[in-house]
Design a protein around this nucleic acid. Structure first.
Lengths: 251, 251
DNA sequence: TGACAATTTTGGTCCGACTATAAGCCGCAT
DNA sequence: ATGCGGCTTATAGTCGGACCAAAATTGTCA
């Protein structure tokens, strides 16, 4: 992707084992995954036969198959003897899967999809904050407070600031004592954090997020479920507005 | 398991290609997946080496590796050279993945987990109903009405009845016009439907679900978001109560 | 004794052959 | 013509065996 300049098909793998980082099958899955999510291969399309595609990628058939297995596990494709490997309809994709989310945000994210994600977040996170207010223990509050302090110290423009922000939300999720909710909101949160880059890019950083977060913290500390929920709803709504304006799309 | 007498490890694959149905790597993934989710292999555990495990299962190393790829794609395990394949901490599992859910409900489902699922459902579905009330079109209402009619015709004890119930909820999700919410609620709904079996098993069928569903339909048809949301909340709460009592666990 | 090097274990990749499945075609009978 | 059933054949599925690469362990030497 750097100075080689070639990669004619746009899909050729690095032949040099140097600096692969990921395993080979992993990068294959990544490439094809991005291609599918970004629409290069539309739902219903049939991928080239295993032999053709794998040698087009210049990898062994085994590695290619393992990549396809991963994609199939995420609901992106389905392979059947004689029929080939077909891209499944979007409704079957595990859109909440962390990897799929990563692939979706690898290119220019679809504005509509981002809106949907925020909508879901606006449903889940306030509820999570409410549960957290009811179930948090002393340790949860300590972590929450520490994250808040870190957010005050560093701006959201810095890496440390974003990590603190993430810690804050993660701590709330842990406090819900609900695994399912944790997994879900963690995925959404990750996706949402990608959009933060767009906010930064647009230099649209007019709002100081600290007060919003502080209000959430106070309500959780006070054990005020309704208050925590409401405060979180405000926080998410504001984040959505920022993102929407930064992406140049109407809310 | 029958007269073969052997199968020492309790994990040996059927050697007879007869009635496999699933592909081989699929059944391997299923077996190991269930074993992990049910706690046979605890987080942090290292699976036997590829050669050992694959020949213990009496399958080729390739098939085994493909199965592991699928599990890795769902966040259940992680493989690293020399380090082996290790079961990841529960927090990394894609608990909302349809397959993982299936595996989780393959054995006796964990009561706590079911409660968490219902809690999440209680958050998402009412919100979805609200959005549906705002965005549904004539076609959505038609499908919804038809599903409701089918539910009246067949009891929930029948397969047709359960399908109708599922159609009803799916139609609501489609009406939200939110892909992310659709995928999520579909997963949860599938999981919840497993629990229906437990309700049946316990013969705890005291409640007639039609009125609850009808109220949701009426509110959506009327475009009453708040009403639809409230009606759905009631519906989910009642379902939770039924399930909880059927599972013999306190709410 | 501590740093370095050889060893060995284990996953990663490749190859080539064979098998099993089902889509699509062809022909038969209606 | 039409619908059904068997046959063909392309394609994914499975296998086994070989070699590569990385990392944990062990052993060795300064």
């Amino acid at each position: 992707m750097t100075e080689h300049g070639e990669d004619v098909e746009g899909m050729a793998m690095e032949r040099t084992p140097r600096g692969t980082g990921r395993r080979l099958h992993g990068s294959i899955a990544h490439k094809i995954g991005v291609a599918i999510v970004s629409g290069t291969y539309a739902p219903g399309d049939i991928l080239s036969s295993e032999v053709d595609f794998s040698e087009a990628l210049d990898v062994s058939r085994g590695a290619y198959r393992e990549a396809i297995r991963a994609l199939a596990a995420k609901g992106l494709v389905e392979s059947r003897p004689k029929a080939g490997t077909r891209v499944l309809p979007r409704a079957r994709w595990n859109l909440l899967d962390p990897d799929v989310l990563t692939w979706a945000f690898a290119g220019e994210p679809d504005a509509q999809f981002v809106r949907n994600l925020f909508e879901l977040r606006a449903v889940v996170e306030p509820a999570a904050a409410g549960f957290a207010a009811e179930r948090r223990d002393r340790e949860d509050l300590r972590v929450l407070k520490e994250a808040l302090a870190q957010m005050r110290r560093h701006s959201l423009a810095t890496e440390a600031g974003r990590i603190a922000d993430r810690d804050f939300h993660d701590a709330i999720l842990r406090a819900t004592r609900n695994d399912a909710m944790m997994v879900l909101a963690a995925s959404i949160g990750a996706a949402v954090s990608w959009t933060t880059q767009y906010k930064q890019r647009a230099r649209a950083l007019p709002r100081n997020p600290i007060p919003d977060h502080a209000r959430v913290y106070e309500a959780i500390a006070a054990g005020d479920a309704a208050g925590a929920s409401a405060a979180m709803r405000v926080l998410v709504d504001l984040a959505l507005q920022d993102t929407a304006s930064a992406m140049g799309a109407p809310v």
